[in-house]
């Protein structure tokens, strides 16, 4: 258990926020590349077809929901692991 004093804490808090923002950006770019590979396969025109658009919408929404679910489970499992380590 690492204990930090007030100044370190502040610094650390800032770091955490930065990390989270960075992670969110990375998630976004992942999402784009994922849905692009899965949905956009027709390069006969430079506009997205309506089918592709629908696919991308669903893909994006589903991916975010998936990540949220993984996030929930991740947290649960992490807590479980911490409890086991403490014992």
């Amino acid at each position: 258990m690492d204990a930090l004093n007030a100044k370190e804490q502040q610094e650390f808090q800032k770091l955490v926020e930065q990390k989270q923002m960075k992670d969110f950006m990375r998630l976004y770019s992942d999402l784009v590349s994922k849905c692009f590979t899965d949905c956009v396969n027709d390069f006969t025109s430079n506009k997205l077809t309506s089918k592709e658009e629908g696919c991308i919408n669903k893909c994006a929404e589903k991916f975010l929901k998936h990540s949220e679910r993984v996030g929930q489970r991740f947290q649960e499992q992490n807590q479980l692991m911490m409890q086991q380590l403490r014992r």
């Binding site: 955490v16 989270q20 960075k22 969110f24 998630l27 975010l64 990540s67 949220e68 996030g71 991740f74």
Partner: peptide
């Protein structure tokens, strides 16, 4: 607090 998805 760390993982990005919670910002969404």
């Amino acid at each position: 607090d760390i993982i990005g998805i919670t910002l969404y």
